[in-house]
Design a protein around this nucleic acid. Structure first.
Lengths: 188, 188
DNA sequence: GTCTATAAGATGATAGAC
DNA sequence: GTCTATCATCTTATAGAC
């Protein structure tokens, strides 16, 4: 359909827009999370930005995917340590945390454009964590009495819930609280 | 200022409005949570409803307070059991759960009309739980190794986080997952 | 106490010029 | 590819009649 050159340029521009958008939301917060505000920060008109993303939903889904991508990039291998590290990083970008939390609730509606993204994301997280917990029990580093699936669900819940408390009271030390919870899962 | 009779009638009408509003939000969900929608369900015009509540913020804060009141009404005494019971009840009113979760995130902004409500509510919950956990440790029913404040924070976080998962996937059994977590806190 | 009407503003989306 | 202009809605809040 499109020449390779133009297509590549479109992709690059999309990436550029997402990088700026991620920055803007991280700094200016959820309040600035309208298509208009982001467009202005990127240096485009609202219509100009919607040339690259057909709808608000598509734009924000792309922002969320981009953010996950950035987060996963620094993983070391020890999944509990990685989780605490990501959470500690989140405390520095409250705007993003809020966008994420708020969108995940709005996406409860099956009609919402980001519904599938969040469903898939939670399912993936739950499965991955469950598997790692089983492995930890096998090698003796985690308590054998834990129900792996339930524990995975609870780790995710604790992480999300701590974010809610942090947003309301930024003095909440999410990483420390989560680390305390995770320490309790280790074999003694 | 106002005659006692008129004042009492105003209070009664406010209560009636809140009851209907609670029902409407529980059934029709967060989407119906605009002043207009609630007003119509109550049988008033938007302006008519705003005669009783000066602003949207005041209305919703009142709705949340009313809901807490209803929830607390059935408490038995064993705080862990009460918590599971409230969570089980919540699964039957997803609209209310969503309103609550969504508003608590919006209220992260210190300017938000419900900001103080949520800050106070979390502080109260945390203090009450901490105290009960200490008591449980004293009488030997809860593990002595738990950090009471951290555990309180985590119980609240788990509860909130489970709600997020439940909203996205209503097959999530919040009460069972939470009960599993709480069982792990008991002395063995 | 309740209504109609309207202000004043934001939003997402689209049409069409260049 | 980007813009301006505009549309169609939606929101909360208020003024003023009855």
């Amino acid at each position: 359909m499109t020449r390779r050159g133009s297509y590549a340029k479109g992709v690059a521009k999309r990436e550029e827009i997402l990088s700026v958008a991620l920055d803007v939301v991280a700094r200016r917060g959820y309040a600035g999370a309208s298509v208009r505000e982001i467009a202005e920060a990127v240096g485009l008109s609202q219509a100009g930005l919607l040339h690259y993303f057909d709808s608000k939903g598509e734009l924000f889904t792309a922002i969320l995917e981009k953010r996950d991508e950035v987060d996963y990039a620094g993983n070391t291998g020890d999944f509990l340590d990685d989780l605490v590290r990501v959470v500690a990083h989140n405390a520095e970008v409250p705007g993003l945390v809020r966008l994420f939390a708020q969108l995940s609730l709005e996406a409860a509606d099956p009609q919402h454009p980001a519904h599938d993204f969040f469903r898939d994301r939670y399912a993936f997280l739950r499965e991955t964590l469950t598997e790692r917990i089983r492995a930890g029990q096998a090698d003796g580093s985690l308590r054998a009495a834990l129900d792996p699936e339930r524990t995975a669900t609870l780790i995710i819940a604790a992480t999300d819930g701590l974010q809610a408390q942090f947003l309301l009271d930024p003095s909440t030390d999410m990483a420390a609280e989560l680390a305390g919870f995770l320490a309790d899962l280790r074999a003694s």
